[in-house]
């Protein structure tokens, strides 16, 4: 099936059970064998449906606790939804944060291998790309040093560099632009432009309204577990600001 839709979400709902009494040890579980544990249900996502076209840059905005991260985790496959359907056409990047699996005790090179493998690159891919990864991150001189000796900027450059070399059709990103100094941020924007030109699909969860205005083709507002509206980024940002004011007062 070849369509121009890369992510299709239909009637997705997800709720979490928050028990009144924590049962996180065998002892309490045993003591309370015959006692019904009461819990509250929190609907993190309530009947969400949307589609993302191939090559589209979708921004998801919403207040804290509106369900953005849960949605992204379900798209990535980290959480399972309760009901609904998620179809993904193309290779999706399974990560939500940069530098997953980084270990400060390992060298930069080892961390590249580890991180890239976790992101789904094969050994040959890594060998082909490692010079380019190191070059983009600008850490040539330090690549064989332990990452614990890196500055935080170097770490984030390295993490970002591996991520963009993971070569996926669909990228999921949770607030990545907060990292790095201005010149590196510019570099990231450069990469976003490059991805856009190459027809990659990107879903970005962010609080940065400027980023939404600047890059997204479309934005989606989540509030209280539902989609409030979606459409042109400029309009959505305005609506989101209104919503925020209304929520505050």
């Amino acid at each position: 099936m070849k369509t121009d839709i890369s992510i299709s979400v239909k009637n997705l709902s997800k709720s979490f059970r928050i028990p009144h009494k924590k049962m996180d040890s065998m002892r309490t579980a045993f003591v309370n064998t015959f006692r019904q544990n009461t819990y509250e249900t929190f609907n993190a996502l309530d009947n969400i449906s949307f589609e993302v076209k191939k090559g589209e840059f979708l921004g998801i905005i919403g207040r804290n606790g509106s369900g953005k991260s849960t949605l992204l985790k379900i798209l990535a496959g980290v959480y399972l939804g309760d009901c609904g359907e998620v179809y993904i056409d193309g290779r999706i990047s399974p990560f939500l944060e940069l530098g997953i699996g980084f270990n400060p005790e390992l060298t930069g090179r080892d961390n590249i291998h580890l991180n890239a493998t976790v992101l789904g690159l094969s050994n040959n891919d890594i060998e082909d790309k490692i010079d380019s990864i190191i070059g983009f991150a600008e850490i040539e001189r330090f690549v064989d040093q332990q990452v614990k000796n890196y500055s935080s900027g170097m770490k984030s450059r390295l993490a970002f560099s591996v991520a963009i070399h993971s070569n996926r059709d669909i990228l999921l990103m949770d607030e990545v632009l907060a990292v790095g100094d201005i010149s590196f941020q510019d570099k990231c924007y450069e990469v976003f432009r490059y991805f856009k030109k190459n027809g990659r699909t990107i879903v970005l969860v962010t609080h940065g309204m400027e980023t939404v205005n600047k890059f997204c083709d479309r934005a989606l507002i989540l509030d209280q577990s539902r989609i409030v509206n979606q459409g042109d980024p400029g309009t959505m940002v305005e609506q989101y600001k209104q919503l925020f004011k209304a929520g505050k007062s």
Partner: peptide, 29 residues
């Protein structure tokens, strides 16, 4: 109704390499 999650292409091709890399780095550490 149940939850359905489908991807057209798998996210990791080579589980063997993945497992080996994780084990190797543990050993190194």
């Amino acid at each position: 109704s149940a939850f359905i999650y489908k991807t057209s292409e798998s996210r990791h091709e080579d589980y063997g390499h993945l497992i080996w890399m994780l084990a190797k780095m543990d050993f190194k550490l």
